[in-house]
Structure formats: C-alpha cells, structure tokens
Write a protein that binds this DNA or RNA. Structure first.
Lengths: 230, 230
DNA sequence: ATAGTGACTGAATGATTATTCATTCATTGA
DNA sequence: TCAATGAATGAATAATCATTCAGTCACTAT
C-alpha cells in the first residue's frame, strides 16, 4: 500500500519534470534534470534512513525502500554506496553554508546584528532538524577513520569560523572588551555544535528555541555593551 | 611474530592472575579475575578498532585481531557484539565520571577553583585522547536510533550538568552577575563537547591545551570578577 | 602422574550485504 | 502508430559478517 503511494509520487515527479523540461526547450541533454531530481530524492531518503536506523545499519536496501524505488537505483545514479554517503554529507554541509551566507547578506549592518543572525541560523528550522542533526553526528562519528568526511566538514568549518572571528573582532574593537576574538569565536562555534548534540540526545529537555536562547544569553554575558540583558 | 608476542603477553597475564588469586585465597569463584581482565582487554581493543576503522567497519574480526585473540572470544565473554559495544561505551562514560568525581574531591573549596578543575578534566590526558573522542562521537552518531546508547550518555550528562549548574549558581551569587546559572552551565558543557569535535576533526589546528585555554578564557569573559584576565 | 576444569581457538554455518546485469517499462521523435 | 532510447527493476552473485561449537590447551587438584 505504501509502495503504491510512493510509486504514484514518483510518477508525478516524472510528469512534473517533463513539463519543466518542455518549457526550457533544451534538446541537447534530454532527461538530465530528472537525474538530478532522482539524486536529491535518494539523498533525502538516505538522510531519513540514517536518522531512523543509524549509519551502520543504513544499507542500499533501506535507502531504496525509503525512496520507494528499487535496489539497483543507487548504483545507477551514484555508482557506489560510498559515493551516495559522501554526497549526502555534502548536501547537508552545502545547505547549511548556503543558508548562513544568504542570511548574512540580508541581515543588518552592525556586527552585533550580523553575529546574532549567524548564531540564530544554527537553530533555524531548515537546519536544526533532528534527522539532519543525526546525519551530522553520524558522519562526525566516522570521520576519524575517513579523511574524505573530515575534509568535507573541515572546509566548511574554516569558512564559518573565519566569518565568526571577523565579527567578534569588530565587536571587541568597538566595545573595548578584553576577550580575544579567535578564542571567543572558537568557543561560540563549539558551543553551537555542543547544543546540537543536546538537541539530538535529549530533545525532551532542549528545544531549538531553548538552545538559541542559551547562545544569545552567552553573547549578552561576553559582550554586555552590545547585547543588553533585558 | 606479533601473534606470538601477544600470546606470550596473554600467558604472563594468566600467570599473574594465578598468583593474585592464590594470595586472596577465595575458592568459590576461581578464575573470576582473569575474566574481567580479558573483558577490559577486549574493550580497549574495541576502542582502538573504532578509532582506526570507524564503528560501522568494526567487526568481531577487527576487534579480535586488535586484541591478538581468536574470533570466538568475544561471544564467549560478551555473548554478542551489541553487548560488547554497549560495555565499551559504558567503559568510556564511567571513566570520565570517575575522574571528574575524584578531581572534585581533591580540588579547592572555592566554587571558582572547583569549576576550573571540572572544566580542565575534559581536556585531561586520560580523557581527551583522540581514540576515546572517536568512541564518544561514534556512539553519539548512532544514538538517535539506539535508545540504549542514548540512555547511557544521558544519565552521565544529567549528573555532570547538575554539578556544573550548582557551581555556576554559587559564583553568580557571590559575584552578583546577571547571567542565569542553568544557561551558563548548559552553554559551557556544550562548548566542551564542541571543542572535542575540533580535537577530533582538526587536531593539527587544535590541541587539548589550546581547547582548555579557550574554555578558561570563556570563564574569564563570563565571570570577570572570579577569573581575572591576566 | 593424571584426570578434571574451563578458557580459548578457529573452521563451519547461515544470514546479510553491495554490486551486477538481463529484462521491463515509459516516453519520445519520426 | 511504432521503433528507439534509456531509466528503472529485481533476481542473481560473490563477499563479508556474527555466531556457533567441537576440539585444543594450560593449569589445578588429587
């Protein structure tokens, strides 16, 4: 019964693409778009499977079942399981980066406003979902033994910390605080990731709103002149 | 060649126990001690295997090989792979708790001293080893889908945060700070775990000493009266 | 000495897994 | 309408895994 529903969903997806494709009138690469759609469909199924079963119990079969497609489909689109997993990690990492970049663009001019916005993104509904947090931690858990995972994460991390350090430096200069920008930024980034862990492990005690409040309260403590307490 | 050395080591262990046992003169449970020794030997081999290969590639064979023992040994002592993994997590969790309890007992009377000591334990050489950090994150990564793992961690977490909150509350009262004790403690605990992630992912950039410095600098920023900056 | 004890071994077993590929099916251009 | 195209299927395959257990070995008590 469920399989039928998923089959229907797949057919709709196929139809939708055809319309889109007809509209673009590109002829050199027919059916190129549905390939991408299939890939993201499979990546999203992988995220659900990792969240539901864990990375070590996520098999080609669980992902295919979650996507409502057949066994062989993953090798067709990703060549191997390993590639699927790498692209899944990249998907989550890139999504986070894209959102905080965009947020910075559309946020205020003051360093304090921008910092607030940047911190809040970590607890945004689009990012801070338990399924996605499970994916982050699943890959972090394997990253000691897989340089590929580590590199994908490290790259993102450097960028993020660089921006964070810049904003902290600006605030410190403005306010004449004693704190060291790199230490503050490093601690702040670490705190956000640690709060993610709480959201994953004890969701009953900690909500995204609560975690955001903890972060912002910390900003008030460290930069009292810029983030007035009440 | 290596196997022979390990075999020799095993024999020595066996001999050592016999002497110990003769000394205690207990007769009802003979050979009970070497069983425990074997178990911790296997648990330590599991830690190395998880750090080297990752949890999802850690098999009965990799653990047995790492311990220099045979295939069947794990089922003999732990009944199943799952039990071995649970006891490995418990081993690491209990070790951390034991050390910070002991540290608190032997540290100064002032809340500030005790808090400093408690934070420093997180970066102690006995705790903050990359192999062990890999184990923490490996299990956290699977914990979304395994209530057993989650419970083992959650229990420890509650205790730790409770002590942390108590110390922060004391300091806040003494110094008349505006900060909320539960928020500060929550943020601090999260930061330590986030710094562990950096130690795991980018050990070239972050050392335990550096991470400890970041934490202590954070304490200085939040409680300037209790942790004077220079 | 020697039989008894129980920790330990490692080959065998059955279950599970990623990957392959001959076949099916839907869609397209002529 | 129909041949051509290539995405999707799912049964088959080979590899890997946890678990079992009959047999081995070191040591103890008699």
């Amino acid at each position: 019964m469920l399989a039928v529903q998923q089959r229907v969903a797949y057919i709709k997806l196929e139809r939708k693409f055809m319309l889109n494709h007809a509209a673009t009138k590109t002829r050199t690469k027919p059916r190129t778009a549905p390939k991408e759609e299939r890939k993201t469909q499979l990546i999203k199924a992988t995220i659900r499977s990792i969240a539901k079963h864990g990375l070590s119990v996520t098999t080609m079969a669980t992902v295919a079942r979650e996507a409502g497609l057949s066994q062989g489909i993953i090798n067709l689109h990703f060549q191997s399981k390993e590639r699927l997993l790498e692209e899944t990690l990249r998907f989550v990492v890139d999504e986070y980066r894209a959102i905080w970049y965009k947020t910075l663009e559309s946020s205020g001019n003051s360093a304090a406003d921008r910092l607030t916005a940047l911190v809040a993104v970590g607890f945004d509904k689009r990012i801070c979902q338990r399924n996605k947090l499970a994916v982050w931690f699943a890959f972090w858990g394997e990253s000691r033994s897989r340089p590929t995972y580590r590199n994908i994460c490290a790259e993102r991390d450097r960028e993020y910390k660089q921006v964070l350090t810049g904003l902290c430096a600006e605030i410190i200069t403005e306010g004449g605080y004693k704190a060291r920008a790199d230490f503050v930024a490093h601690g702040l980034a670490a705190m956000i990731e640690g709060l993610w862990l709480d959201l994953l492990l004890i969701p009953a005690d900690v909500t995204p709103e609560h975690a955001r409040a903890v972060s912002l309260s910390w900003l008030q403590d460290v930069f009292p002149g810029h983030f007035p307490n009440n």
